[in-house]
Design a protein around this nucleic acid. Structure first.
Lengths: 216, 216
DNA sequence: TCGACTTTGTGCGTGCGTTCACAAGGGCTT
DNA sequence: AAGCCCTTGTGAACGCACGCACAAAGTCGA
């Protein structure tokens, strides 16, 4: 389930506060979901709660981490070290969750060779060798839109089966490969949509289009 | 619908290629969705297709833009100009879609006063004035986790009703406010989950936990 | 030891989104 | 002008996820 990471983060916060036990009601509130939904989610992992008491925080952290595969380390490659790639490279939330930044690749000669977060940026020509040598299992694509599909194809050819794509394109991959997409522009557009509805829905109709195309 | 921006982007690509007309089948393939779903989505906007022919690309671009509220300009404030905030400030996909970067705010004295993308970073103490003066309707939060909720509260108090949150916390807001969350760490965790399932599911059970806690 | 209280785990009804399949409708050819 | 063919728009079935509400179960106090 896609909600497990949210629960996990809430549990980490509770653990840091020294809280030992938590009820489904409390945890659900912290995670921003319905308590019945949370209990059903957790029950799919097994019966880890104690009736009348709740869930033991540390134990639940471990169980969810194991379910998510965070008890083992995953080697991640960042491809494209522009503004966004650098932000990702410096993002602390990765290393603390079992993700190891293992390689950085870029096509720009001005960027290749630079050291970011203790890693040297390699040229993308070495992609195949770097991915194989570093045992990369997850690739993060922060490249320009036109480069995304070609780079994706090369990465997949190396055996990578998980891709996090920040480029605003729909990637085509074999069935065995998982792709998750983060599109910053789309998020803003969805907000604009709701914002507009609050303001009273789309203004103008056919007339407006004709004016926009032909002039008034 | 959350898919409209995807359709819109696909249509822009088609328009750039000089394509005048597109069938639901083709557009659906370009957007990576089922053709029936696409037709149903579009029919909710009105009957903009021609049976036997398809949809006129330019006309559809306009209709979707209008539905999404992209025919008017939205003023966006970026709060937090760390690595991620800078990446967002420099992201070209915003300006080209009717979003205007109107203000930048940060708490770090080393960052305040800096010019990024033609805008001067203001101190967060001026948040209320800047948001009011610039007519901000959408706020982008790229601040550290502990700062997110307080900043969010201040922004909401200024009348902003759309927030794009990059901080890894669950924001509490009044009902009238829309919040969209982008959590980079969660995306990676979901990929790790699927990656692990491909590799044969979670390894080890109870024994592993006891070892992790108590030592072997 | 027993009873009352608390909290988990889950069966069931509901509502939404997806998809198939087809009828309605417009263009193109003859 | 008429018929064929293509594509849209949509009715209906399916499946899934959500949430209510309750029984099972375990704890705590007397």
């Amino acid at each position: 389930m896609a909600r497990l990471p949210v629960y996990l983060r809430a549990l980490h916060v509770l653990a840091d506060r020294g809280i030992v036990t938590v009820s489904s009601e409390e945890l659900a509130a912290a995670a921003g979901v319905n308590s019945a939904k949370l209990r059903k989610d957790l029950s799919h992992l097994g019966s880890y709660g104690t009736r009348g008491v709740g869930y033991e925080v540390q134990y639940l952290v471990y169980q969810i981490s194991r379910e998510l595969g965070l008890t083992q380390d995953w080697s991640v490659a960042i491809i494209g070290l522009g503004n966004l790639g650098r932000a990702l490279a410096g993002y602390g939330g990765f290393a603390s969750r079992g993700f190891r930044m293992a390689a950085m690749l870029d096509a720009d000669p001005a960027i290749v060779g630079e050291r970011i977060n203790g890693l040297t940026v390699e040229h993308i020509d070495k992609l195949e060798r770097v991915i194989t040598d570093c045992g990369i299992s997850i690739a993060v694509l922060a490249v320009p839109a036109p480069a995304a599909q070609p780079v994706c194809d090369r990465v997949v050819a190396c055996g990578v089966t998980s891709i996090l794509n920040f480029a605003p394109v729909v990637l085509t991959v074999p069935d065995r490969v998982d792709v998750r997409k983060v599109d910053l522009s789309i998020e803003l557009q969805i907000l604009a949509f709701h914002e507009q509805r609050k303001a009273g829905g789309p203004a103008g109709v056919e007339q407006e289009y004709l004016e926009a195309v032909d002039g008034p």
